[in-house]
Design a protein around this nucleic acid. Structure first.
Length: 504
RNA sequence: GCUGCCGUAGCUCAGUGGUAGAGCACUCCCUUGGUAAGGGAGAGGUCGUGAGUUCAAUCCUCACCGGCAGCACCA
């Protein structure tokens, strides 16, 4: 504790306050309170921010000291440090490997490496063993603030081009933190544990290696990503692995085969062959949905599956979505040219055709048109996944034609309908995500302000929580996405609600 | 589409450069008052497709198709 510094006041969770010189670290605060706390402390919350024990506290603040008993910070630190320890292990085993990034994710972490040779499952075992050595070494974790030029020079000298790029990408004014886990160095915003020995050597496991694009950009190099899971105790790890085993037993692809509900085969990838029992379940669901839609004021319609390209050109799909569409060519007798049709990938253009028939009065609004629309999309091979991502499917789809004043109310009615459907089908809990205006969009800011506000107010009419996904809306309007959590904790994005306003 | 792995009996998988096996399931017989019971016999495979190397390929090489994990994509 340096003297001559201005004093700051730190407020503790119980409301008491202590005074210290500015720049004191949480580690020093903990030591001042009790030696046992100094030993048990792993990090702090300083004004709500997760704070490394070694980071100085510049001014008055609310402070909470975390120990391994504090779930969220403990797991974050464990997983974060395990990511670094894994990267160190990899570079100790293969010094020519280039390191990139390694964030914490749900249940664990990953780290992306650039290495010519692929990692094998056996390599994962070797890396785990090396990680245990590093943990056993109880190497101290140190942090320093460097200026940008020095950090860039350092990574140029050590031959880490990805790190150079990362340093360059750090916004002006943000600290550039250099961390050491023993002799091994990494760029990281932290915070971290105090030494590698604080990591539970028996509560982590390396799970898989897979490709991942550098910075998520498919035009950039593909790296190798190693996934790990980490917990506080061996029992927690075992519980997680058991959960995964249970999940595998409930995999709908496996159940579908075992119970003879449906199958797939090579001749129609991503398209379902429904067997009698499976189709019985399917129809029960569809019948239920039909009753609910009717009760909610929707009228059911049916539109064509194969439609001339002219309509898709008019709707803009031909331009922007053609590579995802199944196209058919027909030689018609006496015709000058082949007629080109496409299987509909979405229902919207067809629904608009029905709306456009005849003269409509504002008295007709809102008009709710629903269809169990049979759609086909040429999804990328790598994207297909059982019944969850397919090329041929029925979209339980509806379009609500209404006035601007009615948007909010119609949206709220929709959320309410969907909520009860999810509840009835066993998904009592779900999240709503509001995707707002993207960079590239049509319509004025005023229109977007209105549209976003209407959706937001509609959500609040029904419930009080939602997340915002900035910039993820469609080019023509904001949208709501509904995410379900299944019986074993996996998240799926299911329902979606998109708002579009026509210029007239 | 990209990276990696995989593609052998209905299912889960083993295997070898000289034209294939196990467990479960299936069929038949026997035993047994029982509920994934025991014993015996049996049926079932163009070893994803095509080309190449070879005297010879399920096994090696290449291409394609399909699947799995992840990434990208999801106007």
């Amino acid at each position: 504790m340096a003297d001559g510094q201005p004093q700051i006041s730190l407020t503790f969770p119980d409301g008491s306050a202590r005074h210290y010189p500015a720049g004191i670290t949480p580690a020093e605060v903990a030591a001042d309170i009790a030696p046992s706390l100094a030993k048990r402390a792993i990090s702090a919350q300083v004004n709500g921010a997760h704070w490394d024990l070694q980071w100085p506290i510049p001014g008055d603040a609310a402070i909470t000291l975390n120990t391994m008993k504090d779930d969220a910070p403990a797991l974050e630190l464990i997983r974060h440090d395990l990511a670094h320890v894994m990267a160190r292990a990899v570079q100790e085993l293969w010094p020519d490997v280039k390191v990139t990034i390694g964030p914490v994710i749900e249940h664990g972490w990953y780290y992306d490496f650039d290495r010519a040779e692929p990692f094998t499952p056996e390599d994962l075992g070797r890396i785990e063993a090396k990680m245990r050595e590093i943990i056993a070494a109880r190497d101290p974790v140190l942090t320093e603030l460097w200026d940008r030029e020095r950090a860039i020079r350092h990574y140029e000298q050590t031959g880490e081009p990805y790190k150079v790029e990362l340093v360059q990408a750090i916004p002006e004014g943000q600290p550039i933190r250099m961390y050491w886990h023993g002799p091994w160095q990494d760029l990281c915003r932290g915070p971290h544990l105090q030494h590698t020995g604080q990591l539970p050597a028996d509560a982590f496991k390396l799970m898989a290696v897979a490709g991942a694009y550098w910075r998520g950009d498919s035009n950039r190099p593909m790296l190798q990503r190693i996934y790990g899971v980490g917990f506080r105790t061996r029992d927690d790890l075992k519980a997680h692995l058991t959960m995964l085993e249970e999940a595998a037993k409930r995999d709908h692809r496996k159940l579908g085969r075992e119970m003879a509900l449906f199958h797939f085969q090579e001749e129609a990838p991503g398209m379902v062959f429904w067997h009698p029992d499976g189709w019985t379940i399917y129809r029960a669901l569809e019948d239920y949905m039909r009753r609910r839609l009717t009760a909610a004021g929707y009228r059911e319609i049916r539109t064509p599956q194969v439609v001339d390209r002219k309509l898709w050109e008019a709707s803009g799909h031909w331009d922007k979505y053609r590579e995802n569409m199944f196209i058919t060519e027909i030689d018609e007798e006496h015709a000058n040219e082949k007629r080109v049709n496409a299987l509909k990938p979405m229902n919207c253009p067809c629904h608009v055709q029905i709306f456009n028939q005849g003269i409509k009065s504002y008295r007709d609004l809102p008009m709710r048109l629903a269809e169990f629309g049979s759609c086909h999309r040429y999804e990328a091979h790598g994207a297909l996944h059982g019944l969850m991502r397919v090329r041929g499917f029925t979209q339980d789809d509806a379009h609500i034609f209404c006035t601007e004043d009615q948007i909010e109310d119609e949206t709220a009615r929709f959320i309410d309908l969907l909520s009860t459907v999810y509840r009835d089908t066993g998904f009592a809990k779900f999240d709503i995500k509001l995707s707002t205006r993207p960079e590239v969009r049509v319509g004025s800011d005023a229109v977007w302000d209105k549209a976003e506000a209407a959706l937001e107010k509609a959500i609040l009419k029904v419930r009080n929580d939602y997340e915002v996904d900035p910039g993820e809306g469609a080019f023509y309007g904001p949208k709501l996405d509904f995410k379900l959590t299944d019986a074993i904790g996996r998240e799926w994005q299911c329902g979606t609600f998109q708002s579009a306003s026509s210029a007239s």
